[in-house]
């Protein structure tokens, strides 16, 4: 199993979610995060002039899938979260040791 952790633009969540749902991946955890990469920051207005903010708001999407589905999920995220400009985000893929469903105590792929 793999955990796919994707940092995406806030406005891309709906597109990414629908694409994953179409492929049959329903479960996910979404968190509001701040971070920085090549996009740099943005300038915000103060009462006079403006100031630089270097951490930008993004969303972190976590999906756990069977090894064989991993590339298909990554493809779906890359296709739907991409604008072609700096700031589209990153995908981190981790090996997943175990998954347990709390209600039934099922383990492994069955529990995803």
């Amino acid at each position: 199993m793999k955990k796919i952790e994707a940092i995406i633009r806030e406005e891309k969540l709906d597109d990414v979610k629908s694409a994953l749902e179409a492929k049959g991946f329903l479960g996910m955890t979404v968190t509001e995060v701040s971070g920085r990469g090549r996009q740099k920051g943005i300038r915000l207005q103060w009462r006079v002039g403006s100031y630089q903010v270097d951490l930008l708001p993004k969303l972190k999407l976590e999906v756990v899938v069977d090894d064989k589905d991993s590339e298909s999920v990554v493809d779906a995220i890359c296709e739907t979260a991409c604008t072609g400009k700096a700031g589209d985000g990153k995908i981190f893929i981790y090996p997943m040791a175990e998954v347990v469903r709390v209600r039934t105590r099922e383990r492994g792929v069955e529990a995803i």
């Binding site: 300038r43 207005q45 103060w46 009462r47 006079v48 002039g49 403006s50």
Partner: peptide
């Protein structure tokens, strides 16, 4: 107007 000249019409402004 002043904040717009400098960049954007600021609400705080």
């Amino acid at each position: 107007v002043l904040s717009w000249i400098h960049r954007r019409p600021s609400v705080l402004g």
